[in-house]
Write a protein that binds this DNA or RNA. Structure first.
Lengths: 251, 251
DNA sequence: CGATAAATTGACATCACTCAACACCGGTGG
DNA sequence: CCACCGGTGTTGAGTGATGTCAATTTATCG
């Protein structure tokens, strides 16, 4: 109900932007979606959205702001699974388990639209395209993780960093949060290091190397790709093109 | 149609075993599923199921045998994303993209039941519980990948190996392919190394260490957990309990 | 302007990789 | 029956990349 004071607002929501990439939703669909939204909430920087070990049964569609999904190990190390961007769903995969296995924390101030997982599932029974959309989202999440495995498993630190920057840029572009060859990087080096499985000093050195080899430039938190081709080659980067969801056969 | 010469055969299929973990499917549901199966096919050891870069639009439900999903990098390194077990779906995530980004190769001889992704999607429109089931599967896939990220990113080699063995055991148990504290490991050390992002010699040393510290015993390819508690502690292992799919509200 | 977070630098130790060689086993063909 | 072979597991030596730890500078924010 908050989501769309006007139908216009709904169309501008980055989650809807992503939905429309692969499903056709008519106005009635959008209204059904709107109907199960509990409201819009804002979260402060550094606040937890999900805590490892606790029950969580919601889907939250991020409207603005950034977060991270991570696991803290008993030895104090932290691995960030992925960064959560506008248009992403907080609650994948946590809400699908009896207890969330990973924490999610806001990195910047963040606003999102909340609905109960159960309500979304009920919507899926009534309008199956939402169940398919959820599958497509979950598959995208899995693919992001897959690339991440390759990053930390078999790419060198400089390759990892390049790959992550390229991928982040691509994800931001989809929801209109990046320019053609540049974007604002809202993450500290500590966060980047924990994403990429590196130590902070080493990450720092790799950043310097990308700069000194004129692959990127950065002032403040703005990253600019100087030579995208070279960067992609270095990172073994391949863009992934999601297939559309097949339409129902009316015949 | 091949899947169930008798209804009995269907129930024994490990994919159905997994489905029934979180959805209730009545006989009509099972029959609908059966109807979209193109047939059962057998694949020889070392044969490719999916090749990186090629179009693939099928879902294959593995009935028996093992495979791996992996990426070959230009520098010749290989990262295995995960191992494919009975009850898993070949085609997640590959079939959801214009071109598959990862290859899948049979590790042992393997049999599976094939259906077109489009046919499955049509089934989802008619019976939304299948769309939800697909979401749940994709989320599980993502979770497996998530643990894998933590493995290669922040766990030491010995922790990684322990964690992988425990997780593999848990997955095999669900589909009745493992004993209470032991199972047959169908993977060579080369495969294990490429799963865990290690070199073969180092993986070998870690195996020896697990043996010498009396955490596991292995003869041939059979792994036995001697001290599960200690192994879980070493690995920071936490079992994950999937939540059931909410039922439709009839009211 | 002070306080806190973030970025950077350097010295150093070590883990895990590389590159070998070698052992073992089962199958296959002479 | 034996020789050969590919696949697999094991061992060793050497080295370089990357983590650790700590100090220092720079930015950010009340």
């Amino acid at each position: 109900m908050d989501l769309a004071a006007s139908g216009k607002a709904l169309h501008q929501h980055p989650f809807v932007t992503r939905l429309l990439q692969h499903v056709n939703l008519d106005p009635v669909d959008l209204k059904s979606l709107d109907a199960i939204i509990d409201g819009e909430i804002s979260i402060r920087k550094r606040r937890d959205l999900i805590i490892d070990g606790y029950v969580y049964r919601k889907l939250c569609f991020v409207k603005d702001g950034y977060a991270m999904r991570y696991k803290l190990l008993r030895n104090g190390k932290r691995q960030i699974l992925n960064v959560v961007l506008p248009g992403d769903i907080v609650g994948i995969p946590g809400s699908f388990y009896e207890r969330a296995a990973y924490s999610v924390t806001a990195i910047t101030d963040l606003t999102m639209n909340v609905c109960a997982l159960d309500a979304y599932v009920q919507l899926c029974y009534r309008r199956p395209q939402f169940g398919l959309a959820l599958s497509w989202f979950a598959v995208q999440e899995a693919t992001t993780y897959a690339e991440h495995i390759i990053d930390v498993g078999r790419r060198t630190p400089i390759e990892r960093l390049s790959h992550f920057l390229l991928e982040l840029h691509a994800r931001l572009l989809v929801v209109g949060r990046a320019e053609k060859t540049s974007f604002v990087l809202p993450f500290s080096q500590e966060v980047l290091a924990d994403v990429l499985g590196l130590s902070v000093p080493h990450l720092n050195r790799m950043m310097q190397r990308l700069r000194s080899e004129h692959l990127i430039a950065d002032s403040d938190r703005k990253i600019e790709f100087i030579d995208v081709g070279a960067l992609q080659a270095l990172a073994h980067y391949q863009p992934q093109e999601l297939a559309p969801i097949p339409l129902p056969k009316t015949a």
